[in-house]
């Protein structure tokens, strides 16, 4: 299990096809982990590219952190990770909250980011989006126990439920994640979004609550193109190969 130290914290990373000349870094969403890419999306991209996946702080197998969930801190972490791995310029992809991190990276460090792929990044000012954290805390466990986990489509057993419950309890009640997210609510209204010059692919689900956020970004980012894919917010899990192929085509386009 590759663990590296970034900004004094242990970070779980996975690298595929290290020998390739160009690198793609993929950022997962909140309450998820790098496995959202590991099984289907990353292996396909790794047929052509060096692919780097990492677990965000307090997620997956990365070290916990009480603070620093705002986009400034999250992009500081990613920038430091790129330094540690000696990645000068990368293609960057992000899903959901990871998409917001990817956008912020392109704004803050444009010289380090080649192409940008945003999957289902929500508008932090949208009522539904802002409610997601509360909804998660209220309904997540019961909903997931009754239905499916995010990536395995299987009812959770006792051990899994306890693990997830511990993570949620920790993130919601011990870290600054809720207040940090609240501070980002004007992000999509910020003129900084319009400064993004990178060629940008926006992938959104046709039935997703976030589709309007994708349309909004499409209007704000000059070199953006929006592709709507059948599914909802969970398109990377529902349509991993469609997503992987769309990403591969996009990164390969000259």
């Amino acid at each position: 299990m590759p663990i590296i130290t970034v900004n004094g914290k242990s970070v779980h990373i996975q690298e595929l096809n290290k020998g390739a000349t160009e690198t793609i870094v993929l950022v997962h969403g909140m309450f998820s982990n790098l496995s959202v890419y590991y099984f289907n999306i990353a292996p396909l991209l790794a047929t052509k590219y060096h692919v780097v996946l990492y677990d965000l702080k307090s997620h997956g197998m990365s070290e916990k952190a009480l603070e620093g969930y705002d986009l400034e801190s999250m992009t500081n972490d990613l920038f430091a990770l790129m330094e540690v791995l000696n990645l000068q310029k990368v293609h960057l992809g992000g899903y959901s909250f990871g998409g917001l991190i990817a956008l912020k990276m392109a704004i803050r460090f444009p010289e380090r980011i080649n192409k940008l792929a945003i999957i289902e990044a929500p508008d932090p000012n949208d009522d539904k989006t802002r409610g997601i954290i509360d909804e998660y805390s209220r309904e997540f466990l019961e909903h997931y126990v009754e239905n499916f986990t995010d990536t395995t489509k299987v009812k959770m057993g006792k051990r899994q439920m306890e693990r997830n419950h511990r993570m949620y309890e920790y993130l919601f009640y011990q870290t600054s994640i809720k207040t940090d997210m609240e501070l980002e609510k004007d992000f999509f209204g910020s003129p900084a979004i319009e400064t993004i010059k990178q060629s940008t692919l926006l992938l959104y689900g046709t039935d997703s609550n976030c589709l309007n956020a994708g349309k909004h970004l499409d209007g704000m980012i000059k070199n953006a193109s929006l592709i709507a894919i059948p599914g909802d917010h969970n398109i990377p899990i529902q349509q991993p190969l469609v997503i992987a192929e769309a990403l591969l085509n996009f990164f390969q386009e000259i």
Binding site: N33, S35, V36, Y38, F39, P43, L44, T152, N164
Partner: peptide, 27 residues
């Protein structure tokens, strides 16, 4: 769960090396 299966896959890859393409098979 998914992240544990990632760990398990890594152990297989570390043990068998290039003998098998476990992630490719899963994908």
């Amino acid at each position: 769960d998914s992240i544990e299966i990632v760990s398990f896959s890594e152990k297989i890859k570390a043990h068998f090396g290039e003998q098998i393409d476990f992630t490719g098979w899963l994908s």
